[in-house]
Design a binder for these strands. Structure first.
Lengths: 340, 340
DNA sequence: TTGAAAGCGCTACCAT
DNA sequence: ATGGTAGCGCTTTCAA
């Protein structure tokens, strides 16, 4: 059992009021008693219980929670997080941002349960999918939530981005440049707590090809796990085919950079020999001149917070919409040349 | 005043125990009373007070706080944060990571005060400098802390990196490649809560030049505010000099990328016409083939958490040391060629 | 099934 | 200057 203020008071032979006073440097305490109390504190290894203190002081800490995958590989989450922070700083600096990261679906379930039950936060931002059951639980708890980039359940307020449209846009850009042999590099489609974005972007890709009357070759479809290195390997595989693609749509900027690195290693010039378009418009894409689809990641984070604050404040409203997606044309794509 | 459980009980004409039971779905409650209570809850807009609940349940939330600059521009903090998260997930998944960002020195002081007074966290990781006064306060509160990358006060446990040495190493790398006209692009030296890293790296740079008997031209010293664009402008200025440098040491990877972008725009090839070395070894530096100084950012975050957990656990120990800095040679530097 | 009451650890006020 | 005590809002016995 952790020592309480009573233990300290008893050991020091004083009242708890006095202990409280030395702890908070409030009121008058004689040097002698202060010394005795401090010694008792040290001897017992006493640490004040912040919960009790807060209850007594009636100072609620105002937390907003964010549950996300460990952002080991997901630079895009960082951009969202940045937006959340900025919004919180601007709009409600008395709120704190608590970061919960989950490593598995099971972990997610369990975590969400405790967070809600303990009422650890006043609102929650989720970047992962939820089951019906979980949504019910949140509904019961009346905990304001907002999802980011989810299409899953329409009854769940969410800042969404249309990945299908994004995929369509990116692909159309390549088609407009005259490309006919276009490959797709992305995440394997999985049915778990991860994002469903890859499939949607791929579907947009497929639709664009179809609308342009272009074939979709299986050889041009490279699906794997997320990451620079994996994408690089995929692209290398593409480039060694007898009829390599002249353009690649990578489902994320990181993967696009992997493709570009692969091109370089294969002796191919970007965009002269091969065009590459990414998706996200990370800060680093600006730095590297990558053509990509701007999906307003930071803004999504910002709007998520703003919406959540509104709901917490009792203002029931519809979640805000994001501006339309757009292709940011930089130096990694260009018109198909005769030599291609 | 927020409604309490008493208000709900009164309005519903029941006891507070019953209200608690319907809130937690515990014990037996008849459907009828449950309904009445729920209606009262809705009518009053009642939300349970999590603090009181936690006190009653004796469930301490275990928080570790991180105070950092808003990481708008500082990709390097992300890498540290990533390390912290991983370590926490591995070592103490019951702890949560709370992110405090501060926008000014004053904001920092104030924030630190509340965090400590409210005992909102069990330990604190700081990436900013502290005054003597603040250190005293923390000492009084017996709040375990650990700094990252600080040289300021030796009595304060800290995971440090030797920026002077790093600057020396980076510069030596360029000198070894045969470069003689070497420029420095970095942050202006400021006396505030920001990191003192730029000055240290610069001093290492200067020492390396001196040891090699090389002159340090004022024209080759470009100091500004942090950022890609600013660095790009600086580098452009360097390239338009009558005797431009053949190599640049940028104090961060982001700034190095800015220099490379400037070179490209000036029609210069990297590394053929100009070598650029950065500092940090961000993930994106791997992606872009940037030669840089590896300073183990993620590991620093990891070690900070591990150390903090040890101290919280009552294990008084010295803060761990980081492995030595090293130059990661990639594709942005090469030996001085005759045409240069 | 329900109400009353004790207690969680602390702060702050009121006596002394 | 100090001790005693009344809350803070909730959960959880214990009776009824």
């Amino acid at each position: 059992m952790r020592p309480t203020i009573y233990d300290v008071a008893h050991k020091a032979g004083v009242g708890i009021g006095t202990v409280s006073r030395v702890l908070n440097n409030s009121g008058k305490v004689s040097a002698a008693t202060r010394k005795v109390v401090n010694e008792a504190i040290v001897a017992l290894g006493y640490k004040p219980n912040s919960i009790a203190r807060q209850l007594s002081l009636k100072t609620r800490i105002r937390n907003i929670g964010v549950i996300m995958q460990p952002f080991v590989h997901y630079q895009s989450f960082i951009e969202q997080l940045r937006g959340m922070q900025k919004a919180l700083n601007d709009r409600a600096p008395d709120y704190e941002l608590v970061l919960y990261t989950v490593s598995s679906l099971e972990h997610y379930r369990e975590r969400l349960g405790t967070i809600v039950q303990m009422a650890m936060v006043e609102g929650l931002i989720l970047t992962l999918d939820l089951s019906e059951e979980q949504l019910d639980m949140l509904g019961n708890a009346k905990l304001p939530i907002v999802g980011i980039n989810h299409l899953a359940n329409p009854s769940w307020p969410s800042i969404t981005s249309n990945d299908f449209e994004g995929g369509y846009l990116a692909t159309s850009h390549l088609i407009e440049l005259g490309h006919r042999r276009i490959a797709y590099v992305g995440d394997r489609f999985v049915e778990d707590y991860t994002l469903n974005t890859s499939r949607q972007r791929f579907l947009g890709f497929r639709q664009a090809l179809q609308d342009a009357g272009l074939p979709l070759s299986d050889d041009y479809l490279q699906l794997g796990t997320f990451g620079f290195d994996e994408a690089k390997a995929h692209a290398t595989r593409l480039f060694t085919q007898t009829t390599p693609p002249t353009a690649i749509f990578a489902m994320s900027d990181i993967q696009a950079l992997g493709c570009i690195a692969a091109a370089k290693e294969s002796g191919l010039l970007v965009p002269d020999d091969v065009s590459v378009i990414g998706y996200d418009d990370l800060e680093l894409s600006y730095h590297t001149g990558l053509t990509t689809v701007l999906q307003h990641l930071e803004l999504a984070g910002r709007k998520a917070v703003e919406y959540l604050l509104a709901v917490i404040g009792g203002d029931e409203q519809k979640p805000p919409r994001l501006p339309p997606l757009e292709v940011i044309k930089r130096q990694s794509t260009r018109a198909l040349s005769p030599r291609q």
